[in-house]
Amino acid sequence: MTGPPPRHGAPDDLPLVAEEVSVVIDGRPVLVDVTVRVRTGEVMALVGPNGAGKSTLLSVLAGLRRPEGGDVRLDGTPTRSLRPRVLARSLAHVPQDTALDFEFTSRQVVLLGRHPHLRRFAPVGPEDERIADQALRDAGADRWSDQEVTTLSGGERQLVHIAKALAQEPRVLLLDEPVAALDLRHQLHVLRLLRELARRGTAVVAVLHDLNQAARFCDRVALLHQGGLLADGPPELTLTRENIAVAYGVRVVVRHDPDTRSPRVVPLDIDEGSGDTR
């Protein structure tokens, strides 16, 4: 595993904090005063209906979008005052769209993840190559290491980009719908990988659509609704019938699933009424 070695002298177990961030896109408030604390050793899911602001929040956390209000801090330093190189050594982001028009091999793409760790004109060294190969294996993308990414399927390319993020050896890993394009096996592989990374001390945040995956694989679920945080906590406390009814407008039952030993959300019907779920 390429999990970053535990860094000595990094006492803060809240490496990344978004403090009351607000984002306005084309005059429309997309995020309103959202506060999120990303914790070391934890897999956190960002869930919510379409348009709730999940991807926006993720790109704000990644420093890719500057919020109109509030601040994102890495170890207490506002990320907007950090140089991209410095930020990228601690923080990696896996985008949703990974299309590429140029014929890099998977391995070349993954090696690009070493960029923030390389000195300006230093070549890629054997250590970087080793880290890249390990990242490819960890992501389950080593079978197409030498294939050109232009020839891969969307799911395969997604795994390559996850490998690239791993090669970056971040303390905080942000993923935008990492399993959306994957088949069942690769979904489980990636979700297990996220757990393993968290166990090794990485802070992981993933936008997920499947509430049951969030319930099963994440320590914490942040439920977004209309640009705000409706709930934030362990899955048992956040993925409740009431919360889901409010956020999604769907009537559900939440059961305990003995096979996965986690809550399981079963959608019943679209909730036409207001509030009353009976």
Partner: peptide, 22 residues
């Protein structure tokens, strides 16, 4: 001298940025 940055730019703006390119 910027050839590595050019490689990064091929990945797209946000991917390049989150991998440390200004």
């Amino acid at each position: 001298l910027l050839s590595r940055d050019l490689n990064m730019l091929l990945l797209g703006e946000s991917a390049a940025r989150s991998s440390g390119v200004d």
